[in-house]
Design a protein around this nucleic acid. Structure first.
Lengths: 112, 112
DNA sequence: ACATTCATTGCACAATATTGCAATTATACT
DNA sequence: AGTATAATTGCAATATTGTGCAATGAATGT
């Protein structure tokens, strides 16, 4: 690819390292909130919608993104859809990120 | 905030959960490549530039983002700047993400 | 002080991400 | 089959991210 060409944007479609897409799924306040909510156990859409105070379509898309990287799975019970964590290791990830962020803030504090 | 208002975009500046910003730093092919390169040891800008084949300014910004979340630190040696991993735990994160992604692909394969 | 060299910032453009509303699709239930 | 309800998709608007070039800034060496 010519270096002079401006490509812009993020990852030019779905191409590239699947891990960046994976981390992207975690790089959102709303999606983190959803994951933390689902940590309590499976929840239906209504519960998630009223918790996050966003349009149903937005929630649907966030959930779809989380499903597309294997973090969340869905099942139906009667009329309503339920969503649940599909890989509990995501909380190891979040917890480690929390620690790392906290430690870094600590380092910053000490520096000033 | 009125619900009808279209806010668009990602996280409206630096606000919100610092962890989503943290994950954002990892949600990039280029930045992952930089981190994996720095895993070998400290590298100067030239080495990173020629490895990634991007403009120096782009590398500078990626590195700045990684520094802003405490993943990378910089030091100067003579004229040139060196960059190094500032929190080795980032590789635990990447490795776990790699495993999780692989396992999920496996699950997908088995489903079809 | 001056020049050189490297890193960063300002700017513009391209592309993606997030959101809300409206319309559509899917699926229980009668 | 028909209807009602819930979830998803299409669309448009807006914010943010990624990139390259040019200009600026910072620091070293003469």
């Amino acid at each position: 690819m010519p270096k002079g060409m401006k490509m812009g944007g993020r990852m030019m479609g779905g191409m590239g390292d699947p891990r960046s897409r994976f981390f992207m799924a975690l790089a959102s306040d709303q999606r983190l909130r959803i994951l933390l909510l689902l940590k309590e156990g499976p929840k239906n859409s209504q519960e998630i919608i009223s918790e996050l105070n966003l349009d149903a379509s937005v929630i649907s898309r966030h959930l779809m993104m989380l499903r597309n990287v294997g973090l969340v799975s869905a099942y139906k019970e009667g009329v309503t859809m339920f969503f649940k964590i599909d890989d509990e290791r995501v909380f190891q990830l979040i917890d480690l990120a929390t620690e790392m962020t906290k430690d870094w803030l600590q380092r910053m504090q000490n520096a000033f």
